[in-house]
Design a protein around this nucleic acid. Sequence first.
DNA 1: ACACACGCTTGATCTGCGTCAAAACCGCGC
DNA 2: GCGCGGTTTTGACGCAGATCAAGCGTGTGT
Lengths: 246, 246
Amino acid sequence: MMIRGSQIRDSAPPVLQGACAQCALGKLCFPHALPAPFRSLLPLALEKRTRLARGESLFHAGEALAGLYAVKAGFLKTCMPLPDGQCKIVGFHAMGDVLGLEGLGKGTHSTEAVALNGCEVCLIPLAKLEKLLEHPVESVHVRKLMGREISRIEAQAAAVGTLSAKQLVASFLLDMSARWEERGYSKNEFVLFMSRKEIGNFLGLTFETVSRTLSYFHAKQWITVHGKNVLIRDMPALQVQTTHAT
Amino acid sequence: MMIRGSQIRDSAPPVLQGACAQCALGKLCFPHALPAPFRSLLPLALEKRTRLARGESLFHAGEALAGLYAVKAGFLKTCMPLPDGQCKIVGFHAMGDVLGLEGLGKGTHSTEAVALNGCEVCLIPLAKLEKLLEHPVESVHVRKLMGREISRIEAQAAAVGTLSAKQLVASFLLDMSARWEERGYSKNEFVLFMSRKEIGNFLGLTFETVSRTLSYFHAKQWITVHGKNVLIRDMPALQVQTTHAT
DNA sequence: ACACACGCTTGATCTGCGTCAAAACCGCGC
DNA sequence: GCGCGGTTTTGACGCAGATCAAGCGTGTGT
């Protein structure tokens, strides 16, 4: 019954209609952004809350889209399978993020979503989603989510293709920092839920290079790293590192 | 009056309501995918046809979204500005492609679109687009376009972060080939409208490396290159190159 | 037709990051 | 506590691709 390492603050029953009304995550979670007149539809929309243990998949590449997912708690990665059987991480996701948007194109997922720790996730089933999306306001909302997703991935792709290892790791840390801040946590001190290997995969580097770069930043006194715990001590220095070469 | 290097087959007036009904590009172009009952809305939607000369921008990064664009003829690139003032190409676009979807997130464009040669482009103005999107069928259509776009960029990002120069150039050629085939042209013989520098920028390589790799493929008899003209002589060899390392 | 500028090719050299290897660390079960 | 497997750190070395540089096409404007 207990969820290891999760940030759930209340003890809501695992399946509950209208649970979002009491949800501690507040407006972060996807359907909460809807304007008042459409809120009444929500208990219908949120059908199932799922718990995932570390390493479990929410969906697989090639699988038919079951609907959209809103992350309530925990951390996930989305991976794209490569021709050679390997898997490239295309994003990390925390509470408030929406997963599955890429599947709206062909009706099947192009990526796999895997839990990095204990997660709780809401499913908005496809049938009910489509019903919801007949209302223009919600339709606009989903388009905005998708547009932002496109911008995010384009920026990511642009960075990976051009920046050096130091630039990539610096911007990765700043990105994580910003995400924690958005969610009301400290922007200077946080935990990396993913391994060095996963960071490397995401940034197009080896885990040795990631480790070395973190050590380098540590030596420069810009950050303090102890395993997965990171303390940012000189944010501007990292920001400069993002732009300047070498 | 004439458009250099363009594939326009008829001599339709530059601005024409309902032009798509006679458009030689047929179903390739975005609004044509709409089912019959909604077709009547189209002459309203397609307000303006724009001609762009080589090097002209359709929209800039940061600019407010004017609407969506459908490419009627010609070739464009979309670029994302980087912190250091450089610009990274995130996509190449040909007739039938839709541009501006990334702007639906924040209402402003996150990329710039630049014509690689003489282009003709239709604008669907934002106000009319929103009207159109109140109809569920069209709303679904745009979501599909966006979903496919997300998948496409994710795949692109995955490739650039992991593949070697030879793998990247091989998959680039195969991608171009597939796009030409989709549009009814030969999949074996085509013209690269972009320069080596632009290919390099797109793939995260230098133009020297792109040039060397093309020469290597040429030496292997897999392709024939004369400037921007490409003839693919051994498609399977290129496909193998995509997966195999070295 | 000419020359100039720009893009492309090809070669030589340099370097950042990948690869291989070994040791330290950390969590976990017993 | 102890031993074990996996992760992380750190070092030494090599290579793919960047950089520097020189010559060659090709298209463009006069």
